[in-house]
Design a protein around this nucleic acid. Structure first.
Length: 663
RNA sequence: GGCCCGGUAGCUCAGCUGGAUAGAGCAUCAGCCUUCUAAGCUGAGGGUCAUUGGUUCGAAUCCAAUCCGGGUCACCA
């Protein structure tokens, strides 16, 4: 059991016997003692004053004396400063820990707890290659799965491949029109990139056609729209006109129009007026909606819709094309997955699951949880829960996204009897996942409460710009990994420490360092927060980074290669501050794993491992290991170093990051 | 507009189940390689923890309001 839990339970027992009442861990707080005070852990006494009826000093004395007397293995001495009881753990405790675990590579990992978890992550679309945002998802999902394994869970990694729908049909149409039979082989392009290129081509043509419709529309020709589209456009236009007439807007707009081109300052001042800004945003939204309507009315979109119908009907040439292009994508993505170290125990394909859930909707209808509207579409009313009405079945009886999600949730449960189902999905789908869970709960599905959305923030370009595949503003996954490897190479060559490596060893090293830096960059941040990535700046290799940690690992290994451990030496019973700090930090590793698994938060591991590496780095600079004052000190430091290296390696593995023996 | 998330050093982030003088990295400045790997170490400067009010012995942390930024409220996925 970890030290902090030992301390907690001994304090609870001591308080109970001293004061004859029940105490729990929520009655008081135990912190790490601040470095400026003597001691290792601190009991905060304030919260206990009322219950014990004591003054801080008296309570501290009484508790401190009792703890030292009753638990001499845990507490050596104590001091009280204001309301804080600082407890010092004897060096013998740290020494025993070190001797027990220093060479144990599974230190921190828990035995199997018999519970099963599924972690769904990655879940790519098959119309484009992976980008930096997908990498965050992949690294997160993989790491969370490993952390849960370390905490004793049985974990299944799964992925749902979105292999059918509008998006892939767009690439297919573009390939038919402009592909000239191009294949990955003939073009020398990776399959996923090739298909992605056609997706962009489609998007360009779609945009061109939509713009053309707008030109006609402006000229008064709206014959290309059906009745519903015409109606919608007219409505939007009226709304737009109304906004333009708003005083707050029109006044500013007029002033702006009168300004010279050079009047930047005045322009800025006017544009920053609140009422103007708000209306401008609203207009932009309406413009976007109008353009979306036009896009839906283009001839090329009609082709996509027809292809989707043909696909569902199983039209052979469409199915063949679909299979061929998806095949290219899978092959390309497998290369990327291998490159970044993602793997899955179970892969679901949307083409197999998109019909799931309809039967559940039927059951829900019978139970009165869903209701049918006059047009025969099926809905659920979630307004009582602060949400909206949500469609679950279209009027033609076909399912929507959430329908198959309900079905897949059940399939996962039925197939694997999992205790918890974690979905690693971006925070843009918070609402959707909330609805999914709520619907399952309302349906009374036994596993509804086990659905957990691990929501993570977007990776954004500077100034909040979004990465959008169809606009080509993405940072490609393969590209960024290659660039990181190049950076690692440049830095390694500059330092010239591994000149004896073979080309193969060098390539491996560059991969370990480059990919490690990238993974750490994305995992060190709390999952729920947005990450800003500036493509014009390279990701750091110094400071709070994977290479820094890897470097310290390599330094330890270098020392250990030159200095053998001596098993029989009796270790000295006194530590220098940095020695003690290192052991005390290492001791917390199991607690950190537990915390990370409870929070599903790899950044807790990243922060912790960095902290260990940093402490080691100071220790390494301050004290010589090989030339320690005595043979006993040397052995002590070798064991501390060994254990540090093991924890670094183990912790980095939980993040999916390798550590090199030399760099 | 409703709901959700965020606002901490010039920048990127920790700290948030309330506790001692708010921490790292980058950047800036000053030192440190004849000894185990300097991708390093030591030190310095840098903060109205968005604002205001409240709860408390004690608030970056909890509550309320406000301001700013983002997400979402699709018969897309």
């Amino acid at each position: 059991m970890s030290l902090i839990y030992n301390i907690q339970s001994s304090v609870i027992k001591s308080l109970s016997s001293l004061f004859g009442q029940e105490f729990t861990e929520s009655d008081f707080q135990i912190n790490q003692t601040k470095p400026e005070f003597e001691g290792d852990y601190t009991v905060v006494l304030f919260s206990l004053l009322k219950k014990t009826g004591k003054a801080p000093q008296a309570l501290g004395e009484e508790l401190g004396n009792y703890l030292v007397a009753e638990y001499p293995g845990l507490f050596e001495k104590y001091n009280i400063i204001k309301g804080f009881l600082n407890l010092a753990v004897p060096d013998s405790y740290w020494l025993e820990l070190l001797n027990t675990y220093y060479d144990n590579l599974s230190f921190g990992r828990q035995a199997a707890n018999g519970r099963k978890v599924m972690v769904e992550y990655s879940s790519p679309n098959t119309n484009k290659p992976l980008h930096l945002g997908h990498l965050r998802n992949n690294f997160l999902g993989w790491s969370v799965a490993e952390i849960l394994k370390a905490q004793g869970f049985e974990v299944l990694k799964s992925s749902i491949v979105n292999d059918r729908g509008m998006h892939i049909c767009k690439s297919m149409i573009a390939w038919e029109k402009w592909g000239n039979g191009e294949t990955p082989e003939s073009s020398g392009k990776k399959g996923d990139h090739l298909v992605g290129d056609f997706y962009v081509m489609f998007e360009n043509e779609l945009r061109r056609q939509a713009a053309e419709l707008k030109v006609r529309e402006d000229a008064g020709d709206i014959s290309h729209y059906d009745e519903a589209q015409q109606h919608k456009l007219i409505e939007l236009q009226q709304h737009r006109n109304k906004l333009l007439e708003d005083k707050g807007y029109s006044a500013v707009a007029e002033n702006l129009a009168q300004l010279d081109a050079g009047a930047h300052k005045e322009r800025q001042e006017l544009e920053s007026r609140k009422e103007y800004k708000i209306i401008k945003e609203k207009i932009a939204k309406i413009d976007a909606e109008m353009m979306e309507t036009r896009r839906g009315a283009t001839p090329i979109m009609a082709e996509v819709k027809q292809m989707l119908i043909d696909w569902e009907a199983g039209k052979p040439e469409v199915i063949d094309l679909w299979k061929m292009m998806n095949g290219w994508v899978y092959k390309g993505m497998d290369v990327t997955y291998k490159l970044i170290g993602s793997d899955f125990d179970k892969t679901y394909y949307e083409s197999n699951t998109y019909l799931l859930g309809k039967d559940i909707v039927q059951e829900g209808l019978e139970k009165g949880i869903f209701f049918r509207k006059p047009d025969s579409s099926v809905w659920i009313d979630l307004t009582a829960d602060g949400l909206d009405e949500k469609l679950v079945l279209r009027k033609d009886g076909t399912s929507v996204y959430i329908t198959q999600d309900i079905g897949l949730a059940r399939q996962k449960h039925d197939e694997y009897n999992i205790d918890k189902s974690i979905y690693v999905i971006g925070n843009e789908q918070n609402y959707h996942m909330k609805v999914l869970r709520l619907i399952c709960q309302k349906l009374g599905l036994s596993y509804a409460d086990d659905i957990y959305h691990l929501s993570y923030g977007m990776v954004e370009l500077p100034e909040g710009a979004k990465m959008k595949s169809r606009e080509g503003t993405v940072v490609d996954a393969d590209d960024i990994v290659a660039e990181m490897e190049r950076e690692a190479q440049a830095k390694t060559e500059e330092l010239g420490k591994v000149k004896d490596f073979t080309p193969g060893e060098l390539a491996e090293l560059y991969h370990i360092i480059g990919l490690g830096a990238l993974k750490f960059f994305l995992l060190r941040v709390d999952p729920k927060n947005t990450i800003e990535f500036d493509p014009t700046k390279t990701i750091d290799f110094v400071g709070f980074t994977a290479p820094f940690i890897q470097y310290n690992y390599a330094r330890i290994k270098s020392v250990l290669r030159k200095n053998e451990l001596q098993k029989n030496i009796h270790l000295p019973l006194d530590f220098l501050p940095l020695e003690k700090e290192l052991i005390a930090s290492i001791e917390k590793y199991p607690v950190i794993i537990r915390q990370a698994s409870e929070e599903l938060n790899p950044s807790a591991i990243a922060l912790y491992i960095y902290d260990i590496a940093k402490t080691f780095s100071s220790f390494f600079a301050e004290h010589s290991i090989a030339n320690a004052e005595t043979a006993e000190k040397r052995e002590l430091r070798l064991r501390i170093s060994t254990m540090t290296a093991n924890v670094i390696k183990s912790g980095m593995r939980l993040l999916g990051i390798d550590v090199p023996e030399r760099m």
